[in-house]
Protein backbone atom coordinates (compact mmCIF):
# COMPACT_ATOMS: atom_id res chain seq x y z
CA UNK A 1 0.00 0.00 0.00
CA UNK A 2 2.88 2.33 0.81
CA UNK A 3 4.16 1.97 -2.73
CA UNK A 4 0.71 2.68 -4.08
CA UNK A 5 0.35 5.85 -1.99
CA UNK A 6 3.79 7.10 -3.03
CA UNK A 7 3.05 6.45 -6.69
CA UNK A 8 -0.29 8.18 -6.41
CA UNK A 9 1.27 11.19 -4.67
CA UNK A 10 3.90 11.53 -7.38
CA UNK A 11 1.31 11.46 -10.15
CA UNK A 12 -0.57 14.30 -8.45
CA UNK A 13 2.29 16.74 -9.05
CA UNK A 14 1.83 17.16 -12.84
CA UNK A 15 -1.92 17.11 -12.35
CA UNK A 16 -1.60 19.93 -9.81
CA UNK A 17 0.60 21.98 -12.10
CA UNK A 18 -1.86 21.44 -14.94
CA UNK A 19 -4.73 22.61 -12.74
CA UNK A 20 -2.87 25.77 -11.72
CA UNK A 21 -2.04 26.57 -15.36
CA UNK A 22 -5.70 26.23 -16.35
CA UNK A 23 -6.80 28.28 -13.32
CA UNK A 24 -4.31 31.00 -14.17
CA UNK A 25 -5.44 31.18 -17.80
CA UNK A 26 -9.14 31.31 -16.91
CA UNK A 27 -8.52 33.90 -14.21
CA UNK A 28 -6.55 36.15 -16.55
CA UNK A 29 -9.36 36.02 -19.09
CA UNK A 30 -11.87 37.25 -16.50
CA UNK A 31 -10.53 40.79 -16.54
CA UNK A 32 -7.90 42.99 -15.02
CA UNK A 33 -7.76 43.56 -11.27
CA UNK A 34 -6.53 47.09 -11.99
CA UNK A 35 -10.10 48.05 -12.96
CA UNK A 36 -11.21 47.03 -9.47
CA UNK A 37 -8.47 48.90 -7.67
CA UNK A 38 -8.60 52.34 -9.20
CA UNK A 39 -11.06 55.13 -8.73
CA UNK A 40 -12.98 56.28 -11.81
CA UNK A 41 -10.93 59.48 -12.05
CA UNK A 42 -7.52 57.87 -12.32
CA UNK A 43 -5.09 58.63 -15.10
CA UNK A 44 -3.83 55.93 -17.43
CA UNK A 45 -0.33 56.67 -16.12
CA UNK A 46 -1.46 55.81 -12.59
CA UNK A 47 -3.00 52.58 -13.77
CA UNK A 48 0.26 51.71 -15.52
CA UNK A 49 2.24 52.47 -12.36
CA UNK A 50 -0.05 50.23 -10.34
CA UNK A 51 0.25 47.44 -12.91
CA UNK A 52 4.04 47.69 -12.65
CA UNK A 53 3.95 47.51 -8.86
CA UNK A 54 1.79 44.39 -8.97
CA UNK A 55 3.73 42.78 -11.82
CA UNK A 56 0.66 42.77 -14.04
CA UNK A 57 2.48 44.53 -16.86
CA UNK A 58 4.49 41.40 -17.64
CA UNK A 59 3.46 38.67 -20.12
CA UNK A 60 1.10 36.09 -18.64
CA UNK A 61 3.62 33.24 -18.76
CA UNK A 62 6.09 35.32 -16.77
CA UNK A 63 3.44 36.14 -14.19
CA UNK A 64 2.63 32.43 -13.86
CA UNK A 65 6.26 31.33 -13.55
CA UNK A 66 6.86 34.05 -10.98
CA UNK A 67 3.85 32.79 -8.97
CA UNK A 68 5.10 29.20 -9.27
CA UNK A 69 8.61 30.19 -8.20
CA UNK A 70 7.28 31.95 -5.12
CA UNK A 71 5.06 28.96 -4.38
CA UNK A 72 8.08 26.65 -4.41
CA UNK A 73 9.57 28.96 -1.78
CA UNK A 74 6.44 28.68 0.35
CA UNK A 75 5.13 32.11 -0.58
CA UNK A 76 1.60 32.37 -1.91
CA UNK A 77 1.91 36.14 -2.23
CA UNK A 78 -0.12 38.97 -0.79
CA UNK A 79 -3.75 39.79 -1.40
CA UNK A 80 -4.29 42.92 -3.46
CA UNK A 81 -5.45 46.01 -1.60
CA UNK A 82 -5.42 44.46 1.88
CA UNK A 83 -1.79 43.32 1.48
CA UNK A 84 -2.39 40.40 3.83
CA UNK A 85 -0.35 37.22 3.24
CA UNK A 86 -2.50 34.82 1.22
CA UNK A 87 -1.34 31.82 3.22
CA UNK A 88 -2.38 33.47 6.49
CA UNK A 89 -5.73 34.43 5.04
CA UNK A 90 -6.42 30.90 3.84
CA UNK A 91 -5.30 29.28 7.07
CA UNK A 92 -7.32 31.66 9.21
CA UNK A 93 -10.48 30.91 7.21
CA UNK A 94 -9.84 27.20 6.74
CA UNK A 95 -10.39 26.36 10.41
CA UNK A 96 -13.91 27.81 10.66
CA UNK A 97 -14.89 26.18 7.37
CA UNK A 98 -13.54 22.77 8.39
CA UNK A 99 -15.29 23.09 11.74
CA UNK A 100 -18.61 24.02 10.19
CA UNK A 101 -18.53 21.64 7.25
CA UNK A 102 -16.79 18.81 9.11
CA UNK A 103 -19.28 18.86 11.96
CA UNK A 104 -22.15 19.06 9.49
CA UNK A 105 -20.82 16.07 7.54
CA UNK A 106 -20.25 14.12 10.74
CA UNK A 107 -23.69 14.93 12.10
CA UNK A 108 -25.17 14.12 8.72
CA UNK A 109 -23.56 10.67 8.78
CA UNK A 110 -24.49 10.06 12.40
CA UNK A 111 -28.11 10.67 11.44
CA UNK A 112 -27.98 9.03 8.00
CA UNK A 113 -26.39 5.67 8.87
CA UNK A 114 -28.89 4.42 11.46
CA UNK A 115 -31.87 5.90 9.62
CA UNK A 116 -30.70 4.50 6.27
CA UNK A 117 -30.27 1.02 7.70
CA UNK A 118 -33.55 1.27 9.62
CA UNK A 119 -35.35 2.36 6.48
CA UNK A 120 -33.85 -0.53 4.45
CA UNK A 121 -34.63 -3.13 7.06
CA UNK A 122 -38.24 -1.93 7.19
CA UNK A 123 -38.62 -1.43 3.48
CA UNK A 124 -42.05 -0.79 2.06
CA UNK A 125 -43.45 -0.29 5.52
CA UNK A 126 -45.07 2.96 6.63
CA UNK A 127 -42.00 4.05 8.60
CA UNK A 128 -39.81 3.45 5.54
CA UNK A 129 -42.11 5.61 3.40
CA UNK A 130 -42.16 8.25 6.13
CA UNK A 131 -38.37 8.39 6.38
CA UNK A 132 -37.92 8.53 2.61
CA UNK A 133 -40.56 11.26 2.32
CA UNK A 134 -38.94 13.29 5.10
CA UNK A 135 -35.53 12.91 3.46
CA UNK A 136 -36.91 14.16 0.14
CA UNK A 137 -38.58 17.14 1.79
CA UNK A 138 -35.46 17.95 3.80
CA UNK A 139 -33.17 17.89 0.83
CA UNK A 140 -35.65 19.91 -1.24
CA UNK A 141 -35.89 22.86 1.15
CA UNK A 142 -33.39 25.50 0.00
CA UNK A 143 -30.70 26.26 2.56
CA UNK A 144 -31.31 30.02 2.52
CA UNK A 145 -35.03 29.50 3.16
CA UNK A 146 -34.42 27.19 6.09
CA UNK A 147 -31.83 29.65 7.40
CA UNK A 148 -34.37 32.46 7.34
CA UNK A 149 -36.95 30.37 9.16
CA UNK A 150 -34.46 29.36 11.84
CA UNK A 151 -33.28 32.95 12.32
CA UNK A 152 -36.84 34.20 12.57
CA UNK A 153 -37.71 31.50 15.07
CA UNK A 154 -34.61 31.28 17.26
CA UNK A 155 -33.22 34.80 17.01
CA UNK A 156 -36.07 37.18 16.34
CA UNK A 157 -38.95 35.40 18.08
CA UNK A 158 -37.34 33.44 20.90
CA UNK A 159 -34.08 35.34 21.22
CA UNK A 160 -32.21 32.13 22.03
CA UNK A 161 -29.53 32.04 19.35
CA UNK A 162 -27.35 34.66 17.67
CA UNK A 163 -28.16 35.21 14.01
CA UNK A 164 -24.59 35.21 12.76
CA UNK A 165 -20.89 35.13 13.35
CA UNK A 166 -18.73 32.45 14.90
CA UNK A 167 -18.45 34.05 18.31
CA UNK A 168 -20.04 37.11 19.86
CA UNK A 169 -18.42 40.07 18.15
CA UNK A 170 -15.38 41.33 19.96
CA UNK A 171 -15.76 39.72 23.33
CA UNK A 172 -17.12 36.20 22.82
CA UNK A 173 -15.10 33.07 22.35
CA UNK A 174 -15.86 30.40 24.95
CA UNK A 175 -17.18 26.98 23.99
CA UNK A 176 -20.77 27.76 24.88
CA UNK A 177 -20.67 30.90 22.76
CA UNK A 178 -19.24 28.93 19.84
CA UNK A 179 -21.87 26.22 20.14
CA UNK A 180 -24.68 28.79 20.21
CA UNK A 181 -23.35 30.31 17.00
CA UNK A 182 -22.99 26.91 15.34
CA UNK A 183 -26.41 25.45 16.02
CA UNK A 184 -28.29 27.08 13.16
CA UNK A 185 -25.69 26.87 10.36
CA UNK A 186 -24.81 23.29 11.28
CA UNK A 187 -28.49 22.37 11.27
CA UNK A 188 -29.02 23.93 7.85
CA UNK A 189 -26.03 22.09 6.39
CA UNK A 190 -26.59 18.80 8.21
CA UNK A 191 -30.14 18.17 7.06
CA UNK A 192 -29.50 17.83 3.30
CA UNK A 193 -26.31 15.83 3.94
CA UNK A 194 -28.22 13.47 6.23
CA UNK A 195 -31.13 13.20 3.82
CA UNK A 196 -29.12 12.36 0.72
CA UNK A 197 -26.76 10.01 2.54
CA UNK A 198 -29.66 8.25 4.18
CA UNK A 199 -31.07 7.38 0.76
CA UNK A 200 -27.68 6.16 -0.50
CA UNK A 201 -27.28 3.97 2.58
CA UNK A 202 -30.81 2.68 2.30
CA UNK A 203 -30.40 1.55 -1.30
CA UNK A 204 -26.95 0.14 -0.62
CA UNK A 205 -28.14 -1.90 2.37
CA UNK A 206 -31.25 -3.01 0.46
CA UNK A 207 -29.05 -4.45 -2.27
CA UNK A 208 -26.89 -6.31 0.25
CA UNK A 209 -29.90 -7.66 2.15
CA UNK A 210 -30.95 -9.52 -1.01
CA UNK A 211 -27.70 -11.44 -1.32
CA UNK A 212 -27.35 -15.17 -0.71
CA UNK A 213 -24.68 -14.98 1.92
CA UNK A 214 -26.89 -12.92 4.19
CA UNK A 215 -29.75 -15.32 3.74
CA UNK A 216 -27.33 -18.10 4.68
CA UNK A 217 -26.15 -16.14 7.70
CA UNK A 218 -29.72 -15.67 8.87
CA UNK A 219 -30.47 -19.37 8.23
CA UNK A 220 -27.55 -20.27 10.42
CA UNK A 221 -29.27 -18.48 13.25
CA UNK A 222 -27.02 -15.45 13.53
CA UNK A 223 -28.87 -12.65 15.29
CA UNK A 224 -30.55 -10.00 13.17
CA UNK A 225 -28.52 -7.13 14.61
CA UNK A 226 -25.24 -9.00 13.98
CA UNK A 227 -26.28 -9.84 10.42
CA UNK A 228 -27.05 -6.25 9.61
CA UNK A 229 -24.32 -4.37 11.41
CA UNK A 230 -21.43 -6.79 10.90
CA UNK A 231 -22.16 -8.62 7.64
CA UNK A 232 -24.41 -6.29 5.67
CA UNK A 233 -22.99 -2.92 6.65
CA UNK A 234 -19.39 -3.73 5.80
CA UNK A 235 -20.28 -4.54 2.21
CA UNK A 236 -22.76 -1.72 1.97
CA UNK A 237 -20.05 0.71 2.99
CA UNK A 238 -18.11 0.45 -0.31
CA UNK A 239 -20.48 2.61 -2.39
CA UNK A 240 -21.11 4.84 0.63
CA UNK A 241 -17.38 5.53 0.95
CA UNK A 242 -17.40 6.73 -2.66
CA UNK A 243 -20.18 9.18 -1.91
CA UNK A 244 -18.51 10.44 1.25
CA UNK A 245 -15.23 10.80 -0.62
CA UNK A 246 -16.99 13.02 -3.09
CA UNK A 247 -18.30 15.16 -0.26
CA UNK A 248 -14.89 15.77 1.33
CA UNK A 249 -13.80 18.54 -1.11
CA UNK A 250 -16.95 20.37 -0.08
CA UNK A 251 -15.48 20.61 3.41
CA UNK A 252 -12.95 23.07 2.09
CA UNK A 253 -15.10 24.81 -0.47
CA UNK A 254 -17.50 25.79 2.24
CA UNK A 255 -21.09 26.72 1.70
CA UNK A 256 -21.11 30.26 0.38
CA UNK A 257 -24.80 30.98 0.93
CA UNK A 258 -24.91 29.60 4.45
CA UNK A 259 -21.66 31.36 5.30
CA UNK A 260 -23.07 34.59 3.93
CA UNK A 261 -26.39 34.36 5.77
CA UNK A 262 -24.82 33.37 9.08
CA UNK A 263 -21.78 35.59 8.57
CA UNK A 264 -19.53 32.57 9.14
CA UNK A 265 -15.86 33.52 8.69
CA UNK A 266 -15.07 30.69 6.32
CA UNK A 267 -13.29 30.06 3.05
CA UNK A 268 -16.43 30.11 0.93
CA UNK A 269 -17.04 33.81 1.38
CA UNK A 270 -13.36 34.62 1.16
CA UNK A 271 -13.18 32.87 -2.20
CA UNK A 272 -16.33 34.50 -3.48
CA UNK A 273 -15.07 37.93 -2.55
CA UNK A 274 -11.68 37.22 -4.13
CA UNK A 275 -13.37 36.27 -7.39
CA UNK A 276 -15.62 39.32 -7.40
CA UNK A 277 -12.67 41.65 -6.84
CA UNK A 278 -10.30 39.75 -9.16
CA UNK A 279 -7.84 39.23 -6.37
CA UNK A 280 -5.45 37.02 -8.35
CA UNK A 281 -3.10 35.85 -5.59
CA UNK A 282 -5.99 34.88 -3.34
CA UNK A 283 -7.87 33.12 -6.13
CA UNK A 284 -4.77 31.10 -7.02
CA UNK A 285 -4.16 30.22 -3.38
CA UNK A 286 -7.68 28.91 -2.88
CA UNK A 287 -7.64 27.05 -6.21
CA UNK A 288 -4.41 25.35 -5.24
CA UNK A 289 -5.84 24.33 -1.88
CA UNK A 290 -9.01 22.98 -3.49
CA UNK A 291 -7.01 20.99 -6.03
CA UNK A 292 -4.83 19.48 -3.31
CA UNK A 293 -7.86 18.54 -1.23
CA UNK A 294 -9.66 16.92 -4.18
CA UNK A 295 -6.60 14.86 -5.07
CA UNK A 296 -6.04 13.83 -1.46
CA UNK A 297 -9.72 12.98 -1.05
CA UNK A 298 -9.49 10.65 -4.03
CA UNK A 299 -6.44 9.00 -2.53
CA UNK A 300 -8.15 8.66 0.83
CA UNK A 301 -11.19 7.11 -0.83
CA UNK A 302 -9.00 4.51 -2.53
CA UNK A 303 -7.38 3.65 0.79
CA UNK A 304 -10.76 3.39 2.52
CA UNK A 305 -11.94 0.98 -0.21
CA UNK A 306 -9.15 -1.37 0.72
CA UNK A 307 -9.93 -1.08 4.38
CA UNK A 308 -13.65 -1.80 4.10
CA UNK A 309 -13.32 -4.42 1.38
CA UNK A 310 -10.38 -6.81 1.77
CA UNK A 311 -10.96 -8.13 -1.77
CA UNK A 312 -9.78 -4.79 -3.11
CA UNK A 313 -5.99 -4.69 -3.21
CA UNK A 314 -4.09 -1.48 -3.94
Amino acid sequence: MRKYILKKLLTTIPVLIGITVIDFLIMARAGSPIDMMTGPRMTEATKAALATRLGLDRPLWQQYLSWLWELLHGNLGYAYKSNQPVLDLILSHLGPTLLLMGLSLLMGLVIAVPLGVYSAVHRYEKRDYLLVAVSFITSSVPGFFLSMILIFLFTVTLGWLPSGGMVTAGIGGDLGDLVRHMIMPVTVLTLPIAASNMRYIRSSVLEILETDYLRTARAKGIGRRLVIWRHAMRNALVPIVTVIGMQIPGLVGGAVIVEKIFNWPGLGLLTMDAIMTRNYPLIMGVCLLSAVVVLLANLLTDILYALVDPTIRL
Partner: peptide, 22 residues
Protein backbone atom coordinates in the same frame (compact mmCIF):
# COMPACT_ATOMS: atom_id res chain seq x y z
CA UNK B 1 5.90 56.13 -3.45
CA UNK B 2 6.14 53.79 -6.52
CA UNK B 3 6.07 50.82 -4.17
CA UNK B 4 2.71 51.93 -2.81
CA UNK B 5 0.82 53.62 -5.68
CA UNK B 6 -2.51 54.59 -4.25
CA UNK B 7 -4.65 54.66 -7.37
CA UNK B 8 -7.72 56.18 -5.75
CA UNK B 9 -6.31 59.51 -4.57
CA UNK B 10 -5.65 62.50 -6.86
CA UNK B 11 -2.05 63.09 -5.77
CA UNK B 12 -1.21 64.09 -9.33
CA UNK B 13 -3.00 67.38 -8.61
CA UNK B 14 -0.26 68.34 -6.14
CA UNK B 15 2.69 70.38 -7.32
CA UNK B 16 5.65 68.12 -8.03
CA UNK B 17 3.79 64.80 -8.17
CA UNK B 18 3.90 63.18 -11.59
CA UNK B 19 0.87 62.25 -13.64
CA UNK B 20 1.16 58.62 -12.58
CA UNK B 21 0.43 59.72 -9.00
CA UNK B 22 3.95 59.02 -7.75
Amino acid sequence: SPSCVNASMMFYAIEGVSDDNT
